[in-house]
Design a protein around this nucleic acid. Structure first.
Lengths: 225, 225
DNA sequence: GCATTGATTTTTGCATTCAAAATGCTACCG
DNA sequence: CGGTAGCATTTTGAATGCAAAAATCAATGC
């Protein structure tokens, strides 16, 4: 085994980094829904040429994060209420499946990790730290999905979650809604601890329905981010 | 309104056609699992340059139909048993959701269309015409998904179905299995006619489990297509 | 005879270039 | 004054060209 083995010391492919960079620009709100994306601008901003950029744009379009208008360039996808109504039932089906499988397969250590994240999140909730709360919240949901050991499921979930993140709905996260969400998370942790698949699936579904309403409220308010 | 309006008389984007062409090459078995895909070869075959081809390859990779090895080109994805075990539960969740929604939303005409497809399929079954059977089978499942009116759901389903189609499992479709599948389809039509969502979901799930076993049998037999 | 090393060839990744479509502007006409 | 036609500019779509990495092959040493 004289070769460098599997550890890739090679420079990372530009194309992937561009993908990540643009996704980040969308999530941070640097690029917002409906906005056109001139290739030249992004090229200068990232110091790359148009070829790898265009490759990344095609992939992002296939993920639904932006739309390509032939001969008229790309624009950031706009999240409509009807799209949200489409996406959340699918999210529900995926998370429901994940809940069921996770209860069967997650290790005790895995549950402990989620519990740790949960209490961290609860602390941020009590201190009113919304940004930190959302970060932990996302991590918990991802951990549950990851606990299924199903990469296909995880990939689809992540893709859908990314499209919803475009809404930046946390801007419309009222205190009552926050209280409710935190209570739902208590239930989630409880169901997971008891490895009660059906209950976890039910709670996740309820949690998701409420999130859906919040997101739609944001969109209806004109903030389509 | 002097412009050409929405009717696109413009030449279709090469990039999309390439995508479709390569997908077709995978489904027809012209490109088989594990096989490397030299850019030059495809370029000559389709009479295009490498730039749009590479854009298409990136998209296909993001769809899971092929994998990109940095600096080492693309290869057709290989369907492993563990991947199939991942994909079918997700398919089940999606089809289950589709069954539920379809029963609520499908029009009577929509049911009639599926019924027509069903009887056509049954005729091919009786005549032992496997290829035609599979074509109709695919159309029926797609119709059920389409009846939900949920494009996000349909897109995810289609993407997963495409990856499974790579297995060309019809090669291993025994007569007993075929009899069983046809019986399941009778049940599917029946549940749909009665608009019995839970029953439809259950039948689709059973149908899918059997398909999963058939696909895995093909893979285990060395034919990874 | 076999393995290893080095040069050659091929292939990939990206930048650049060229052509076509769309956009914006100006001048002209009603 | 408003609208349209024509031209210039900008932007996208695709082909080509160039540099780096990988694969291939030959020669050398053991």
């Amino acid at each position: 085994m004289t070769q460098a083995a599997e550890i890739s010391t090679a420079p990372p492919p530009r194309h992937d980094e561009i993908l990540i960079a643009i996704r980040e620009m969308i999530f941070t709100g640097e690029l917002i829904g409906g906005q056109r994306v001139p290739e030249k601008m992004i090229c200068q901003q990232l110091s790359i040429s148009r070829t790898p950029l265009r490759e990344a744009l095609k992939v992002l379009a296939s993920e639904g994060l932006l739309e390509l208008l032939p001969n008229r360039g790309a624009r950031i996808a706009r999240l409509t209420a009807s799209l949200v109504d489409e996406m959340f039932p699918v999210m529900g089906a995926l998370e429901g499946l994940a809940g069921k499988i996770a209860c069967q397969r997650i290790s005790d250590d895995g549950i402990d990790e989620i519990r740790a994240l949960h209490y961290q999140m609860a602390a941020h909730y009590k201190r009113g730290e919304l940004g930190e709360y959302f970060g932990l919240n996302q991590q918990i949901h991802e951990k549950i999905i990851a606990a299924t050991g199903n990469a296909t499921l995880a990939g689809m979930y992540t893709s859908l979650a990314a499209r919803i993140r475009m809404a930046r709905y946390r801007a419309n996260f009222s205190q009552p809604r926050w209280d409710q969400a935190m209570a739902e998370h208590d239930e989630i942790l409880s169901a997971l601890t008891e490895r009660d698949g059906p209950r976890l699936t039910g709670v996740l579904s309820k949690h998701l329905k409420n999130t859906c309403e919040t997101v739609k409220a944001v969109i209806a308010g004109g903030e389509t981010g």
